[in-house]
Amino acid sequence: MKEFNVRSVLVTGSNRGIGLGLVKRFLELPSPPEWIFATTRELDESQSKEVIELALKHSNLVVLQMDVTDPNSIKAAAQRVEEHVQGHGLNLLINNAGITQVTTMENENVETMAIVYLTNTVGPLMVSQEFLPLLKKAAQQSAQTGLSCSIVNMSSMAGSIALVTSLEFLQEPSYRCSKAALNMVSKCQSLEYKDYGILCTSIHPGWVKTRMGTEKAPQTVEQTTQAILKMLSTLYEKENGSFVGWDGQIYPW
């Protein structure tokens, strides 16, 4: 893998699954980030035990409580990050937190559509808005030309309108719609933030063995997160505003 040097990174939804896996991969880098911020909706040990234990072993890992559906919670987390980075900003924001609800076109309803959309689409947008000043600061200080800092939104191939040819395998319309909308958020961010030196993209992580992905999934968290870090190390301006797979493949919207 190309040497991946990033001074600071924040990963939402880091108490389990892909988020926790990404935190572990960053810690394992030959030159790990000076600061890794892992956010979780609940800080109690029953929900976030593993990431809290990791933080006790690694002084550069900070676990923060943050509910991506709560603006006050997001603001408080951003203030904590600002205290730690001490004027250097945030180099990489990974909007990983997300949920799904098992629904069909027949029984989909207002409640599931609202909470899934709020968490998967509005949440990443609000988090990005709140952390934008720190991302701008890091980009301004970077010696790298072009797009030096990144917002990465964890999407899904299930949100690709072009690739949905059948609902036989997975219906869950609220999840699909939320990820399709998140892809539009990424595209809009890529246009709005390019002049600040911030790259924005959506990522399809593949089908992964997590609580959401189930044990039927072919990919392990370790395989997927290793591949994602490899892919992130090669992102360049041409990927700004794109929908990239964990394997580096560009997916259609």
Rank of each mutant, 00 (worst) to 15 (best):
S155T: 05
M184I: 14
S178E: 07
M154W: 10
I151N: 00
Y175K: 11
L199Y: 04
I161Y: 02
S202L: 13
L167I: 14
E192T: 11
L170C: 05
E168S: 10
D195H: 13
A158N: 07
S156W: 07
P173H: 06
I198P: 03
Y196A: 11
S190L: 12
S174M: 10
N153K: 09
I161N: 02
S178N: 09
V152C: 00
N183I: 08
S202R: 09
S155V: 11
I161A: 01
E168C: 03
A180K: 03
A158T: 07
Y196I: 11
A158V: 09
L191S: 12
M184D: 00
L191C: 05
K194V: 03
V152H: 00
M157S: 13
C200K: 02
S166W: 06
Y193M: 11
S190R: 11
E172K: 14
F169K: 11
F169G: 14
M184G: 03
T201S: 10
S174F: 05
C177K: 00
I198L: 06
S202G: 01
A180P: 07
N153W: 12
F169P: 03
T165L: 10
E172N: 15
S155P: 08
S160G: 05
S202H: 04
P173V: 04
I151D: 00
E172I: 15
M184A: 01
C200M: 09
G159W: 03
K187V: 14
E172Y: 05
S166A: 06
R176K: 12
S155M: 09
R176V: 12
I161G: 00
E172L: 15
I161H: 00
T165R: 01
D195F: 13
I151F: 10
L182C: 07
T201C: 14
E172S: 09
G197K: 04
K194L: 06
G159Q: 02
Y193D: 09
A181E: 13
N153I: 13
C177D: 04
K187D: 02
A180T: 15
A158H: 08
Y193K: 05
A181W: 07
F169Q: 15
L170W: 06
N153Q: 12
Q189R: 02
E168L: 15
S156F: 04
A162S: 15
